[in-house]
Amino acid sequence: MEIIKTTRLTKYYGKSRGIEDLDLTVNSGEFFGFIGPNGAGKSTTIRTLLGLIAPTSGSATVFGKDITKEKEAVLQNIGYLPSEGLFYGEMKVKDALKLSADLRKKDCTAEAKMLCERLQLEPSRKIDDLSFGNRKKVAIVCALQHNPDLLVLDEPTGGLDPLMQKEFFDILRERNHAGATIFLSGHILSEIQRNCTHAAIIRDGKIIACDSVEALSKTNAKRVTVHGTVDLTHLNGIRDRKEAKDAVSFLYSGDMGSLLHTLSSGQINDITVKEPDLEEIFLHYYEKDGETV
């Protein structure tokens, strides 16, 4: 089942582009990564889906419901974690959580208590007195406490220490296994590669690649790192060559036989050949107008 589906979704802020003819589909149960640098249109997409801004043209549905006509029904089942969401500073953590639950007309006390314990958040503290990371935790509990079917996370880990990040992703995986769909926007690629099953890359307001993370990472090219001395001048298909003392690393998409032949003529102490990581693919998409590696 399609959880999110946008059709030629376009948003202009006056004359400046937010997103343009964006087609995006996220299916039920996916852990979906939404990758792009600042200003590519990630937040615009999310804000449109949540009804904070109205699309200029095109349409979008969440849970099969139109985001403008049935906004409240859609939002009832979404948990949203804003990248820099702020709260009413004078409130106590538990009051803010209660306010959020009340606005959903749900009693989330038990779930909130459990989440606060796992994230080590004190419900009796005033929000103004919390550190940035702890305020993030309040936002996380708000997004999770009503057990939504869809979680929309905008750069979720900023401000969280590594232990908390791990705990956070553990919770997300549990939710995902229990059936929730997760839509994670960000630019920390290792995070997306580690956690997401599917991903889309957005550039200049358009989706330029969308597939399973596995398929996105799988390309003809290999990252080859060689320790020792070898003459690579006659080898074709080398890109992104990085030299270090005693070592050379490059992306290779040429003939394997000639690679082995060239390497065998050199003095080699160690060699690794591996799939390029998402980071390299991502950079490639951004440098080369979207051709595959």
Binding site: E72, A73, L75, Q76, Y80, L86, R104
Partner: peptide, 8 residues
Amino acid sequence: EFLLTHPV
């Protein structure tokens, strides 16, 4: 962003 993303 907090208030208006609730089902209200």
